[in-house]
């Protein structure tokens, strides 16, 4: 019965993802008739303008939304699992503060070096997470990771504020980064993040059955032969790499890494393998749809995807919470 339900859920999930991918490519601020859309997709003569719009603007945006959504959701589902905290999200392990710090550093030292922005954001996020993980490793408490994350993030945010307070141009650039979005992202920028997110998902799926043991608590998992410390480290590093990859090109997209894991866990339970796949698929769908709404609802103006996601996601999350009688999906 449970297996049949999961097959149905997966079928619905895949269908919704495919439809959202199609809609993301099909619709935008410029109207495209069905004939023009297919003509552009197949690069037929007579549809040159639509071909440029589709291949240079819409498809890269859709791909960016897929990679960012999958990366942040994967990160969230891993972090909520290993910290046993339903509020855990990539920003809690310093991803946002670290990426922001990397960006601000480059913007203030070499504001014209655009090619350094993405690597700086990735390195900032990843190195900050490493610092937080090594600080938390001195304690055996699961809360140590979150507490260390809050402390380091607060310190970095203060440094960012110092930089932006002194330089208003820097503040404007940082604000655009902190809202998050996919405008102007090129396919070349997405190759490395896409590979990183895929590798992280594969590693966690391969280790899935061992990671599942962590839900019994550290003592029981160790009694069943799990290397708890090593598994937790792998999960946190994968979470860090996946989220850092996403924010490096998409900016500080909040919320998706928090709500999508709850939806995935609500649908698929505790098992890591289906959770990894489902959270990537749901995260991609949410980001593609939020971006689509953001660029069509007030066209030709655009509402950044981070704002759209918070506007649409928060009521949905509350609805889910009320429907479950206030229980978190970790329970």
């Amino acid at each position: 019965m449970k297996r049949t339900n999961n097959i149905w859920r997966t079928a619905v999930l895949v269908t919704v993802l495919v439809v959202s991918l199609w809609a993301g490519a099909r619709f935008g601020s410029t109207w495209m008739s069905p004939t023009a859309f297919w003509g552009a997709l197949l690069r037929r003569a007579g549809f040159e303008t639509q071909t440029v719009i589709l291949y240079a603007v819409r498809l890269p945006r859709v791909l960016a939304a897929v990679v960012a959504g999958a990366g942040l959701s994967l990160s969230g589902v891993l972090l909520q699992g290993v910290t046993d905290n339903p509020l855990a999200a990539p920003n809690l392990i310093g991803v946002n503060a670290g990426a922001g710090f990397g960006m601000v550093l480059v913007l203030s030292v070499a504001p014209t070096a655009l090619s350094l922005m993405t690597p700086a954001a990735f390195l900032g996020a990843f190195l900050t997470t490493l610092v937080i993980v090594s600080l938390a490793a001195r304690s055996t408490s699961r809360a140590a990771l979150i507490l260390a994350g809050v402390a380091v993030s607060t310190a970095l945010s203060a440094v960012i504020s110092c930089f932006t307070y002194a330089d208003t141009d820097l503040l404007a650039s940082f604000n655009a980064f902190s809202v998050g979005g996919f405008a102007g992202v090129g396919v070349n920028e997405l190759i490395l993040p896409a590979i990183a997110v895929t590798l992280c998902a594969v590693v966690c799926a391969v280790l899935g059955d061992r990671i599942d043991l962590l839900c019994l608590g550290d003592a029981s998992a160790r009694l069943l032969g799990a290397r708890v410390g090593a598994l937790r480290l792998v999960c946190v590093l994968c979470a860090s790499i996946a989220a850092a990859s996403a924010v490096s090109f998409a900016g500080l997209l909040g919320f998706v890494g928090l709500i999508v894991p709850h939806i995935a866990r609500h649908l698929y339970g505790y098992r890591t393998r289906p959770l990894v796949v489902a959270s990537c698929a749901i995260g991609a769908t949410v980001c593609v749809l939020a971006d689509l709404v953001g660029r069509t609802v007030a066209a030709p103006s655009e509402i950044p995807v981070g704002i759209m996601m918070a506007l649409l996601g928060a009521p949905f999350f509350l609805w889910l919470l009320v429907r479950r009688g206030g229980r978190s999906t970790n329970e």
Partner: peptide, 20 residues
């Protein structure tokens, strides 16, 4: 750890009760 878990099993005092 896995070899040890094939030789010794233990029932702890306060096991966790996850949704499984």
């Amino acid at each position: 750890p896995r070899e040890r878990a094939q030789r010794v099993a233990m029932m702890i005092q306060q096991p966790r009760l996850p949704h499984v």
